[in-house]
Nucleic acid binder design. Structure first.
Lengths: 166, 166
DNA sequence: GCAATACCCGACTAAATCAATCAACTATTA
DNA sequence: TAATAGTTGATTGATTTAGTCGGGTATTGC
């Protein structure tokens, strides 16, 4: 099992889409700026999200991405699955041939853990995240900063990873 | 967060010790044979388990490792921690500076997930695993096979990873 | 119709981690 | 004192991560 930036970025980007629903397509450049994720990397992730029919794309000027379903119908577990980060904690992918064709001593433990994690994450939808106080606060801060950057003018580069921001 | 063979092997090896408690020190060679884990790799893992005072070692002929506490007092979470596989799902190690000094959009979600997983794993002790039916079954099979290999004689190498076993 | 926008796609890469292997060394005990 | 068994450090091939780079192609406002 692994949960790295790949899965975290995917969920963050999907949540960004959910937060800006109803404002037409959202460009990856916007998400990149707001969330501080490399644009090229986002393109890779959205290719997978699109193949899994979690988002749909609109090409051309003014284009971008939109959720393909309502936020209440998309849960965190399937977003992570879509970018190939399995939530499976077993080493044998549930086949049970961990030790020369038979199950290993701890096989059932990892199965239980997988069930636990998957259950937890699939109960959380984008809609439920949007409703959370802490998410709202961070989103407002990000929108404010993005607006600020636009007014300041040419300095529209996204804030860098380690960079201190006002 | 990551859970790979490192953490799984560590838990498996500790459970093997718990299953053979009271039979004096258990050598890593024995564990290697029963569990199909490379001896050299076990040495690395047990160096960390010893530094974390989860096991104690006895040197010399007839030596090996023993649990440093009773099985009911050792939980799975601390074993995984001991081999440097954190159960933390955040990217910022709970510091909260995921995005230029501030928390990112999904920080609290990953905190919740971490709490969930840690809670689940720290409720499972070696003693509770030893008592499980499925663990007992696998352990018996492993002991039987090891005995068999000893009788057959010179062929005492551990069963290889992909090898089909009778 | 054409230039700008924005998605689409594939190849490539530096760094990190995994899962070991190898060799040498030290302590203990039969 | 020789065999056993734990201890430590260096090294390694394979894989994955977290991107970058460079070229496409579709669409639309002017």
């Amino acid at each position: 099992m692994r949960l790295t930036t790949k899965g975290r970025y995917a969920v963050t980007a999907m949540l960004d889409l959910a937060l800006h629903e109803g404002k037409g397509p959202i460009s990856l450049a916007d998400i990149s700026e707001r969330q501080g994720i490399s644009l090229s990397y986002l393109e890779q992730l959205f290719a997978k999200l699109r193949r899994n029919e979690l988002v749909r794309s609109v090409r051309g000027p003014g284009g971008g991405y939109q959720l393909n379903r309502e936020p209440a119908g998309i849960n965190v577990a399937e977003v992570i699955d879509a970018v190939n980060e399995s939530v499976d904690a077993t080493g044998c992918k549930h086949t049970g041939n961990c030790q020369g064709g038979e199950v290993c001593l701890t096989h059932h433990l990892w199965c239980d853990l997988s069930t636990q994690i998957h259950g937890f994450l699939s109960d959380i939808t984008l809609a439920s995240l949007v409703a959370r106080r802490d998410v709202k606060d961070v989103a407002e801060r990000q929108d404010r900063r993005q607006l600020n950057n636009m007014i300041v003018g040419s300095d529209t580069r996204p804030a860098e990873a380690g960079e201190a921001v006002v």
